[in-house]
Design a protein around this nucleic acid. Structure first.
Length: 447
RNA sequence: GUCCCCAUCGUCCAGAGGCCUAGGACACGAGAUUUUCGAUCUCGCGACCGGGGUUCGAAUCCCCGUGGGGACGCCA
């Protein structure tokens, strides 16, 4: 059993391609087969080394490891030409004057790229091609609807369909799993398999991932590349779990499950045949689930590089303290970026006071007095721990005959500038007495 | 236009003829927690596209319609 993922390095790894890669990988890991990576770089103009690096990085980040060295189609031109010649010799193909087509459809004949006549495969009309698709079941196509197929372009490079067939056959790929958008390529490829005398692999076409308006997911729907999600603070584990659930299900209403479990349960035959809309809200939830599952140390390890590069911490920063901070924000964060957006005031003294927060919690009758009293109590405290802070606050509330919340809310705004955040007593402990007192003093200017 | 694929809550999935007065999750709404909420807990809202068959019985099988998507490059 051998499958492959065959990206062309003409762009970043799209979320849809990532899912195709994942399904191939899962199927291979599930059945103990091989997962091959083949680079389809036969488009001279658009293929770029930087894109290849990007794709490889994304695959590694997702944890999709491949089993052999990379295969580059651009290094196998002789092989494709050999098979093209065979078609020519057997009278199954003919040659045609060179031409180059641009994207807009216009034809140019005088291009430097034209190095030879194109080789074109003759399609016999009136034949029915039958596919027994792993996910769709039987599909039939009449060759009347298929035009003659270019095999070798005028620049000497093979076309996608031809190179794909030659490689899949030579590499003995047993299962070709790819996106639904390739269904119409499959009968063309089968014609090549037959003409070249190759054995047919199994085909499985997985549905597409759609944007919220049900059209193919593209930039206007938001982030489409794996890299972007990585940058936005999503975890690879969550990403893989979420993508796997787009068009497949482990059954028994299970959703959040470790990769081992997914591998164990995965079967391409259980993939759905219907397109799936990508729902960022659910991804957010899933990512939050994974963030919460990490213990503070694991999460801190992920946060560390960014904390350092922001200059928020140094090598001298106390580890236990960092662990506490991490734990404080973990529960609410849905992405790693949330953590940075929400915790800045813990690491620096720059506080962005939210207008609403000041209006609602600070510029109120009596707040100045409450803050002053709170400040006194906190100054007098022997230990500055969450427990003792809570005790002092509640005691003060009793004495002033107000609710504890009337102290808690303004203090939270005073130290963080925000209405929402971690539990106040733990937060104050983590901030430390000096910072807390300073900020209580500082906020008076805003009253 | 031609060909192909698809059709269960707003979204993702469960459902392989009786287990379905259709189940779970996200989102949404309400309540709780009186230390906030973007956290947590509880409850609620909400779907088998339409029409014909087949069958004792259909979300499940067949046909037609409708709707959505994809492909029709010397791109991959």
């Amino acid at each position: 059993m051998k499958v492959r993922f065959a990206p062309s390095p003409t762009g970043y790894l799209h979320i849809g391609s990532a899912r195709t890669a994942l399904f191939n990988w899962l199927y291979a890991r599930h059945s103990g087969g091989k997962f091959i990576l083949r680079i389809e770089d036969t488009d001279l103009e658009r293929s770029k080394a930087e894109f290849l690096d990007e794709i490889l990085d994304s695959l590694k980040w997702l944890g999709l490891d491949w089993d052999t060295e990379l295969i580059h189609q651009s290094k196998r031109l002789d092989i494709y030409r050999k098979y093209a010649k065979k078609l020519l010799d057997e009278g199954l193909a003919y040659e045609a004057e060179g031409e180059i087509r641009s994207k807009d459809g216009s034809v140019t004949k005088d291009s430097k790229r034209i190095t030879q006549k194109a080789v074109i495969f003759k399609v016999q009309p009136g034949k029915i091609i039958k596919i027994n698709d792993l996910v769709h079941g039987p599909i039939e196509i009449n060759t009347d609807t298929i035009k003659d197929q270019v095999v070798i372009k005028s620049d000497g490079f093979p076309t996608y369909n031809f190179a794909c067939v030659v490689d899949d056959a030579e590499m003995q790929i047993t299962h070709v799993i790819r996106g639904d958008d390739h269904i119409s390529n499959t009968p063309k490829q089968i014609l090549f398999y037959e003409a070249l005398g190759f054995n047919l692999p199994e085909f499985g076409h997985v549905p597409l991932i759609l944007g919220s308006d049900r059209s193919r997911m593209s930039k206007r729907h938001g982030a489409t590349s794996i890299r972007e999600y990585r940058e936005q603070g999503y975890l690879p584990q969550a990403m893989v779990n979420f993508i796997a659930l787009l068009g497949w299900s482990p059954g028994k209403d299970r959703e959040v499950l470790p990769i081992d479990e997914i591998i164990k349960e995965f079967d391409i035959k259980n993939a759905k045949s219907v397109n799936a809309v990508f729902d960022i809200e659910k991804l957010n939830w899933m990512n939050g689930q994974y963030i919460n599952k990490f213990d503070n140390q694991e999460l801190l390890d992920l946060l560390m590089p960014e904390l350092k590069s922001r200059g928020w911490i140094s090598d001298q920063t106390n580890k236990d303290w960092l662990l506490k901070v991490t734990g404080l924000f973990k529960e609410r964060a849905r992405t790693l970026v949330d953590f940075f957006d929400w915790s800045g005031y813990v690491f620096t003294d720059e506080i962005k006071y939210e207008e609403q927060a000041i209006k609602k919690r600070i510029k109120k009758e009596g707040v100045a007095d409450i803050l002053r009293s709170a400040s006194e109590r906190l100054t007098a405290l022997k230990d500055f721990t969450a427990v003792s802070i809570e005790g002092a606050c509640r005691e003060l509330a009793d004495e002033l005959k107000i609710k504890a919340a009337d102290i808690i809310h303004p203090v939270r705004v005073a130290v963080s500038g925000r209405m929402m955040g971690p539990g106040l007593f733990e937060l104050l402990e983590v901030l430390g007495r000096d910072k807390v007192l300073k900020r209580l003093e500082q906020v008076k200017k805003l009253v």
